[in-house]
Design a protein around this nucleic acid. Structure first.
Length: 749
DNA sequence: GCCCTAACTTAGTACACTTTTT
DNA sequence: AAAAAGTGTACTAAGTTAGGGC
């Protein structure tokens, strides 16, 4: 598959990737980023589904009819109106680049918050499990016979209370007493058989969630002032006011939308009287409250060791009591056993709902999921759960409906758990299956660029982007409910610029849009001519805020992918390309002769190539410049030290030559060693500096955790004798225990 | 097909905690 | 011992996908 996907299959042009990356994060600084504008009258009929073969005709004709006749926009455009409206607004205000955490807020989006939310319906049905499909490749290598029975049963008969239990397998165990944190000696779930029928567990018991501590009213000397006059608020209103007070230093509180949303929700908590008095947020003075909280946090920092220890112990107790569950004979760690406390919603990017009150979750909001035959969690005294159900086709233990978007939140298990681990493993197996057929798929989509049908061409070009650029699928989003971000299928005309020729390259496409979490994706890439021509075609006669792929959405795309390969979806390409890139980069960058730090640098660079591919960014650490400078100082000092040592070595040598006695020979050796040691230290520092510089605004963690088949890293460590701890910290080793155990040095993704 | 949404993965940041430096 | 730097964890928002209902 040719040449232009050099960053994946062939090699990554690492240097250029790194360099490019720096632009990525300077989101929309001066540039006015607005996608919206326009006459709402533009036609956007969504009806014409007529699946027209708009294709048979030649381009010319097509361009005319297409996008005009209303037959086009079928799959999308539902929410365009709003966007336009916003755009108008944003025209006047210019974009300030709001900084803070590197988030920028593009133009304000207005909205009408409405908090309807649905209560979850009673559980309905069970989904199909896909496991079977994977059987062929994804199966435990060995199943210990001695464990067979247990495996088969996976029952709950015995109770696992005691931290160490018999549930683990014979051999693995007998070693050590676990530290208090490690309950069982590693259970190798990956050597056991998996459920295949959509069942996620047979037995589940847990203690339920930990609720947020109740509100503690302010001491009476801490006052709120309205229009300069002190005012005692009712507890509910006061609590909400404290949320705002706590954020006073945050830039959020200067944003209109935030303030407006906050004020509206705050007023709902006020008494009639308060409501009539407090009519203008600008007249509210929260500063005493704010100072009070600052003082409190200072006090917390200043606590004595004993006090801190006590808190720590209390946390540990909570963790021990609520942080684990028993699932099928094993005690497993829960990821998030604390219910999210109330507060003001902080959306990312330009979120229309920022500032809304995120309400306190009470027991009667909570649905518990556990085994019928388990000991149910007990709600706090005087309260009841909303429901207790026993659905073993899902993995969550607790759920509730959140009031901002009306979505459901869950308490689930830790990544080290069997249930998460199996899924993760399966994910990489799917990606490996893609590896086997990716050439075929690429050939196919290239063929499809020539299709007579518009929808097929669009699908093929979108797939090309997803494959080559590792774009996300890009679902449609409800306008006004969330920040305006896009992925591949939801790209709009305004997000691309076409250059038939640019900087000596032909057919260059410039992407510039906000993706997940409102992280900017900026990239200029040369594409194949056919792709370029197709893009021109797709963009003809469209407005900037029209969808680029008007005949495509994620569901169409995924359905197509499913037909090409069992289990294939758009995101598999990201996993595949990330992992294969790591593997290749490691192969390419690792030098056998390098010492360990240099090898680790190579690893980080390979990792970085992936992070760049996936556009994983972070705000440059606030202290970046300074720490860089410090490092440089250290390096300089080390250099001086080195030249001193060298000089000493030299004179010692000379001395030895003259004296020729054992003692001076020894002295030479000693000096020689010293020089060597300093050289090593220097090199280590330099490596560190390089690594850090290159990493300034790139986040490696996300790809490491979610996209890179851990077996690749494990194999690399084994092959080169790099301790696994240098690559994965403790948490990561727990999450990837399966990979660490099963991959040998020859593992190939 | 379209629409909705439950369930689950992926994501970046804040801040707590740990280690290193001064 | 304090401060600064560095690392890890908790948190929760924001995506993707499957599948049910019409």
């Amino acid at each position: 598959m040719s040449g232009d996907r050099s960053h994946n299959e062939d090699q990554v042009d690492y240097a250029s990737l790194v360099n490019d990356s720096h632009k990525h994060r300077d989101k929309y600084k001066d540039k006015e980023y607005k996608h919206k504008d326009h006459k709402k009258d533009r036609e956007k009929s969504k009806h014409g589904n007529s699946d027209y073969k708009d294709m048979e005709k030649k381009y010319k004709e097509k361009e005319k009819m297409k996008h005009k006749d209303g037959s086009t926009d079928k799959h999308k455009d539902k929410h365009k109106e709003k966007r336009k409206e916003d755009k108008m607004k944003s025209l006047d205000g210019k974009i300030k680049k709001e900084k803070e955490n590197g988030f920028v807020s593009p133009p304000h989006v207005k909205h009408e918050p409405e908090d309807d939310y649905h209560s979850p319906k009673y559980e309905k049905s069970l989904k199909r499990e896909r496991d079977d499909d994977y059987e062929a490749e994804f199966k435990p290598k060995k199943i210990k016979t001695e464990n067979d029975k247990k495996v088969k049963k996976r029952k709950q008969e015995e109770d696992i209370k005691p931290k160490k239990t018999k549930s683990k397998k014979g051999e693995a165990t007998d070693g050590k007493k676990k530290a208090k944190q490690e309950p069982e000696e590693k259970w190798k779930w990956w050597e056991e058989e998996r459920y295949t029928d959509g069942v996620k567990w047979k037995f589940l018991e847990h203690k339920g969630p930990v609720f947020a501590p109740p509100y503690e009213p302010l001491p009476s000397n801490v006052k709120f002032y309205y229009d300069g006059k002190p005012m005692k608020l009712n507890p509910e209103a006061e609590e909400v006011a404290t949320f705002f007070a706590k954020m006073l230093d945050h830039e959020y509180t200067t944003k209109d939308i935030f303030r407006k949303n906050f004020f509206k929700d705050w007023r709902k908590e006020m008494t009639a009287e308060e409501k009539s008095t407090i009519t203008d947020l600008k007249k509210c003075d929260f500063s005493e409250m704010s100072d009070y909280f600052k003082a409190q946090s200072e006090a917390r920092k200043a606590m004595t060791k004993e006090q801190k220890l006590k808190i720590k112990e209390e946390n540990e107790r909570l963790l021990q009591e609520y942080g684990f569950c028993i699932m099928d004979n094993h005690k497993e760690r829960i990821a998030n056993f604390r219910i999210e406390p109330p507060g003001l919603f902080r959306g990312r990017g330009d979120h229309p709902k920022m500032g809304m009150l995120k309400r306190r979750i009470r027991p009667q909001d909570i649905i518990i999921n556990c085994s019928k035959d388990s000991k149910y969690p007990t709600p706090p005294p005087g309260t009841k759960w909303k429901e207790v159900r026993h659905d073993n086709k899902v993995t969550w233990l607790v759920s509730w409906t959140e009031n901002i978007q009306g979505s459901i939140k869950y308490i689930m298990l830790n990544p080290s758990s069997r249930i998460k681990g199996e899924k993760d493993w399966q994910k990489y197996e799917t990606a490996r299956r893609l590896k086997k057929c990716v050439d075929r798929l690429r050939a196919q989509y290239r063929e499809d660029w020539k299709s007579k049908e518009m929808r097929i061409r669009q699908r093929a070009v979108a797939l090309y982007f997803i494959d080559k650029l590792a774009l996300r699928a890009g679902n449609e989003k409800e306008e006004g409910e969330t920040a305006d971000t896009v992925g591949c299928c939801s790209l709009r005309v305004e997000h691309l610029k076409l250059y038939p020729e640019s900087e000596g390259q032909e057919y260059v496409v410039e992407f510039d849009f906000l993706g997940k979490d409102s992280i900017r994706y900026y990239n200029r890439v040369p594409v194949e001519k056919r792709v370029f021509k197709n893009l021109q075609l797709f963009m003809e006669n469209k407005e900037p805020d029209d969808d680029l792929f008007d005949r495509l959405n994620t569901s169409i795309l995924n359905k197509h992918l499913q037909e090409l390969m069992d289990g294939l979806t758009a995101k598999v390409f990201r996993t595949y390309n990330a992992s294969i890139t790591l593997q290749q980069q490691l192969k390419e960058l690792t030098n056998a002769e390098d010492n360990i730090p240099a090898k680790i640098l190579s690893y980080n660079r390979a990792n970085r190539a992936v992070a760049i591919l996936c556009n994983h960014q972070r705000a440059p650490p606030k202290t970046f410049e300074k720490s860089m400078q410090n490092l440089q100082t250290k390096i300089d000092a080390k250099k001086d030290q080195l030249s001193d040592a060298k000089r000493e070595l030299k004179s010692t040598k000379a001395d030895a030559k003259v004296r020729k006695d054992e003692k001076s020979k020894k002295a030479v050796e000693t000096k020689r060693k010293a020089v060597q040691r300093i050289e090593e230290q220097l090199m280590k520092l330099e490596v560190q500096a390089t690594d850090r510089e290159e990493n300034k605004q790139i986040a490696l963690g996300t790809s490491k955790l979610n996209y890179l088949d851990p077996r690749i890293s494990v194999a690399w460590c084994k092959k080169w004798g790099v301790p696994i701890e240098k690559i994965y910290n403790k948490t990561q080793r727990e999450k990837f225990a399966w990979a660490i155990d099963m991959a040998d040095k020859d593992y190939e993704f």
